[in-house]
C-alpha cells in the first residue's frame, strides 16, 4: 500500500476521534388504551435514555429524555423519534439543559421526528440547549401532524455559558423546522447563524444582543387562543421580547432576551398557559422545570 501523503491526514478526522463520537437514538410511541396513555415501542441506544417517572396528579404520561454523556461534542449525533397515536396524551421533556461543546470542525447533530395522530396531544418540551462558544450545531425537527392532532413544542437556545460571561462568538448554528399536516408542507422555519457571528448579534434586526432565544409552536386547533394567552402574559416579562402570530393551523411565538433566566421563566409560563387553555392540563409544568 502506498504511504498516505501527510497533507491528507490533516483534512481527515483521526480514527480515535471517530471512535469516540457518539451516535445515539431514541424512539418512543404513545398509545391510548381505554383513556389511558401508555408508552410503547421503546428503543434507545447510548447516550440516549428515556426515564418514565410516575405522572403527577392530573398530568399526562411523562417521558424524560436523558443524554447520559453529559453533553454533545463535535461529530456527535442524536436522533429522536416520537409518535402519538390517536387519542394519546403525553409529555416528553429532557432531564437537564443540553450542552453543545466547542467543536474543532465537525458538526453536532440533533434530529427529531415527531408524528401526531388525530385526537392526540403531544408535548415536546426539551429544556434549553446551551451553545458553548465555538459550538457547531445543526438541529432538524420534522413534524407530521394528522388533522385533528395537536403538538405543543418549544426550543430554547442559550448563546454561550452566560454564567461565566461567555458569548457565542464563533461557531455555527442551523436550526430547521418542517411541519406537514396530512402530508402537506404547512410551515417551515430555518435559523442560520454563520460566521462572523458578532455582527448578527449586534444587528438590531438580527439578535440585538440576545443571550437567549426561544420558539414556541402550537400546531393544530386553538392557535388564536394560544396566541392571545401568550400576548396577555407578555406584559409580566418586560425584560423579554415576546411576539406571537397565527399562520393558519400553526401558532408561532418567539422569545428574545438578554437575560437567559428571565427568558426561560417567560417560556415556562407560556407553555403552562397554552397547555392549560387548550388541553385542560396544569399551568405548572413538571417539577424538573423549577430548580
Amino acid at each position: 500500500m502506498p504511504p498516505v501523503p501527510p497533507d491528507v491526514t490533516w483534512s481527515q478526522p483521526s480514527p480515535p476521534a471517530c471512535l469516540q463520537r457518539s451516535d445515539g437514538a431514541g424512539r418512543l410511541r404513545f398509545v391510548a388504551d381505554h383513556g389511558r396513555t401508555q408508552a410503547t415501542g421503546l428503543y434507545q441506544s447510548d447516550p440516549v435514555r428515556f426515564l418514565f417517572p410516575l405522572p403527577e396528579r392530573g398530568e399526562p404520561l411523562p417521558a424524560i429524555l436523558v443524554t447520559t454523556s453529559g453533553g454533545l461534542a463535535g461529530g456527535d449525533r442524536v436522533r429522536i423519534s416520537l409518535a402519538a397515536e390517536p387519542g394519546a396524551v403525553a409529555t416528553v421533556s429532557t432531564q437537564a439543559a443540553e450542552k453543545v461543546y466547542r467543536s474543532t470542525g465537525p458538526v453536532t447533530r440533533f434530529d427529531t421526528t415527531i408524528a401526531v395522530a388525530a385526537g392526540a396531544w403531544l408535548e415536546w418540551l426539551p429544556q434549553e440547549t446551551i451553545l458553548f462558544d465555538g459550538a457547531r450545531f445543526a438541529r432538524t425537527t420534522e413534524v407530521d401532524l394528522a388533522a385533528g392532532g395537536r403538538l405543543l413544542a418549544i426550543e430554547m437556545l442559550v448563546f454561550g455559558r452566560r454564567a461565566r460571561g461567555e458569548a457565542f462568538s464563533y461557531g455555527a448554528l442551523r436550526d430547521d423546522w418542517r411541519l406537514r399536516i396530512d402530508g402537506r408542507l404547512t410551515w417551515a422555519d430555518a435559523l442560520r447563524l454563520d460566521e462572523p457571528l458578532a455582527p448578527l448579534f449586534a444587528a438590531r434586526a438580527g439578535l440585538d444582543g440576545a443571550a437567549a432565544m426561544a420558539t414556541l409552536i402550537l400546531a393544530g386547533e386553538g392557535g388564536a387562543i394560544a396566541r392571545d394567552a401568550i400576548r396577555d402574559a407578555a406584559e409580566a416579562h418586560p425584560a423579554v421580547r415576546i411576539g406571537a402570530s397565527v399562520l393558519g393551523p400553526v401558532m408561532v411565538a418567539r422569545f428574545l432576551g438578554r437575560d437567559a433566566r428571565a427568558l426561560r421563566d417567560a417560556v415556562v409560563q407560556a407553555v403552562g398557559l397554552v397547555r392549560n387553555r387548550l388541553a385542560g392540563l396544569s399551568e405548572r409544568l413538571p417539577d424538573l422545570w423549577y430548580g
Partner: peptide, 19 residues
Amino acid sequence: DDVGTAAPMVDWASMRHET
C-alpha cells in the same frame, strides 16, 4: 438548503405589528 434567516428581531417586530 441554505435558505434561512438570522433575523429573529424582524419576526418579533412583525408579530408586535399585528397589535
